[in-house]
Design a protein around this nucleic acid. Structure first.
Length: 574
DNA sequence: GCCGTTTTCGGCCCGACTGTTTTCAGTCG
């Protein structure tokens, strides 16, 4: 039987929840969670790691985990998971999803009221039974009812492409206040995760009240969830939760580091500090006193650089802070020099033939020049050779008038159900750049989809595979293709793989970008733009590339145009 | 459960906020 990394991670996460509900050891719980997190982020398949014996090389994975993973691969579950499940109804796990319902409270309502599902919890609240329990009251009961309501409406995580603009609106409003010295997004939006659970906004200011007043007065705020001395949380009409922290400027760097996370990265950094006699919290870095009765001494925290310097590390960019080897790399001086938007030279996936919102070819070219691109491939999906010839003439005429940018008469070719290409060989040979995409078969097996891509890659006519998994964030998961094999094929055939910057795609994802880098396969970071404005969404591709540790050398569209022209010439002659 | 520059035992990040309390437990990030 085949299990995915997500399946295995899910079981560990459930074991953590169940152990917590059963008052298990807190460190055991954390360990289960850590394993779940690590497996979720893993780019290799957990099954192959298990089989090769490399699983235990992963930090946080010990003997017990290897044994459980073995059982899960074999049977779909493991002894501990089964035993934990037998002791408690599965509905309790849903209740943990309700904000305000932690393990203690779930256990309390289960044992005292017999409540074992969200529906029953709701009924108990409405009947006023919850408020009768110890340490519970009317307010708690109301809050939980509200939480159930928003849990039901909740649509999951928000794509980064929606979260960043929402965050920027808060930054613009707060940054305009006279008392605000600095403000930034923190949390997973600063780490540029592809989806965001909630937004974290950090402000450096000596005055708290005016900042919070402005924060809760923002136009899209639907509800104020809490408001304390330094911290305030609101829920927007979209359901997105936004958390604000206001800090003294002296603490700002320490706070920015702390609230950027990830949690695993923070734990590792603090642990490192602890071993050097330092205490690191959101207010600063402190040297622990050597004698009884002395106070810790503040030694830094105004900037993130000071925090890293205190633990003898160079600055680690937020996109890398996942405790996935960045601390070790920083220590060895081998952190990547991450690519930036300014490094991009070209764009190789651009449509001028979209049905609506269509900008002219000229407008697209002007916008590309404005963005500093030196080459641009027009890759419309045209199936008639006549229309293609027509477009080539238009591109050639435009090129005549303009020498700031090299225009390539490209094409997007569709990969059919059996891997056949939607255009004939002669037409494809005439094109200057061919990107091939599969646009259907979302529910196909990974093997079937990979076989389609393989046939296209081995045709000798294709330069690049576009959005290989063909996923839509929050829409469809994408084909479960074996990226190990895809990347090996790319290496073998010299075909590039695209990182599609459409914020709903971000495909390749960051983990697979990193994998491509490790195998020395160049990624074509493209906009897949349908309008002039969308050319700039390479911003999101760059975020993903950075999370995937990519440098200039790993990105085709950060290379001079000759690199791809030479590869294509070699392909067509060989 | 995992780990080791105090390595096979003993420690594991740390603080804010709320509601229900008379000093704090539970939750969250």
């Amino acid at each position: 039987m085949s299990v995915t990394n997500k399946d295995v991670a899910g079981i560990f996460s459930e074991m953590a929840d169940l152990t917590e509900l059963q008052d298990g050891n807190a460190f055991r719980i954390r360990s289960f969670r850590r394993v779940a997190q690590v497996l979720e982020d893993l780019h290799e398949s957990v099954t192959s790691l298990y089989e090769s014996g490399a699983l235990s090389d992963i930090p946080g994975v010990g003997k017990g985990t290897v044994r459980r993973v073995g059982q899960i691969i074999e049977t779909g579950t493991c002894d501990d998971h089964r035993e934990l499940r037998e002791k408690m109804p599965a509905g309790l796990l849903d209740m943990l999803q309700i904000s305000g319902m932690g393990p203690k409270t779930v256990k309390l309502v289960y044992e005292r009221l017999g409540v074992s599902s969200v529906d029953e919890l709701e009924a108990a609240c409405k009947a006023g039974h919850l408020a009768e329990l110890p340490r519970m009251g009317e307010k708690t009961q109301d809050r939980i009812l509200k939480s159930i309501e928003s849990w039901r409406k909740r649509s999951g995580r928000m794509p980064l492409g929606e979260a960043i603009p929402a965050g920027k609106r808060f930054l613009d409003a707060l940054g305009a206040l006279g008392c605000v010295e600095r403000c930034d997004l923190a949390g997973s939006s600063r780490r540029r995760r592809e989806t965001i659970g909630d937004l974290d906004v950090l402000v450096a200011s000596r005055e708290v009240a005016p900042v919070m007043d402005a924060f809760v007065a923002q136009p899209l705020v639907a509800e104020v969830l809490l408001r304390g001395d330094t911290k305030c949380s609101v829920r927007l009409e979209s359901g997105l939760q936004v958390d604000l922290r206001v800090l003294e400027p002296e603490s700002y760097g320490a706070a920015l580091h702390y609230f950027t996370g990830s949690q695993m990265h923070n734990i590792a950094i603090r642990d490192r500090g602890k071993r050097a006699g330092l205490r690191i919290n959101e207010y600063g870095v402190y040297r622990e006193p050597t004698e009884e009765g002395q106070e810790p001494v503040l030694i830094g925290g105004a900037s993130e650089e000071e925090v890293f310097a205190a633990v003898k590390l160079p600055y680690i960019p937020p996109e890398l802070r996942e405790n996935r080897g960045e601390i070790e790399a920083a220590e060895k001086g081998t952190l990547p020099e991450l690519i930036t938007d300014a490094d991009l030279r070209g764009d190789l996936h651009v449509h001028t033939d979209a049905a609506e919102g269509q900008d002219s070819l000229e407008a697209m070219v002007d916008a590309a020049i404005e963005l500093g691109r030196t080459y641009l491939a027009i890759t419309d999906r045209i199936s008639s050779p006549e229309k293609l010839a027509e477009q080539r003439t238009a591109i050639a005429m435009l090129q005549e008038k303009c020498d700031e940018i090299r225009l390539l008469a490209g094409v997007e070719v569709v990969i059919g159900p059996d891997g056949e290409l939607s255009l004939d060989e002669a037409t494809l040979r005439e094109a200057e750049w061919v990107i091939a995409c599969a646009h259907d078969g979302f529910d196909q097996s990974g093997e079937k989809m990979l076989a389609r891509l393989e046939r296209a890659m081995k045709s000798g006519l294709v330069d690049c595979i576009g959005h290989p998994a063909n996923r839509i964030l929050g829409g469809r998961p994408g084909a479960p293709i074996d990226h190990d094999k895809l990347i090996a094929l790319a290496k073998e055939t010299g075909v590039f793989i695209e990182l599609d910057s459409d914020p709903r795609r971000l495909d390749l994802d960051a983990a697979h970008c990193r994998q491509a880098r490790e195998h020395d396969v160049m990624v074509a970071l493209c906009s897949d733009a349908r309008s002039a404005a969308e050319l700039a969404r390479t911003e999101y591709g760059i975020y993903t590339a950075r999370r995937g540790w990519l440098e200039v050398a790993n990105v085709l569209t950060a290379q001079p145009v000759e690199v791809l022209l030479e590869r294509r010439a070699a392909r067509l002659s060989g």
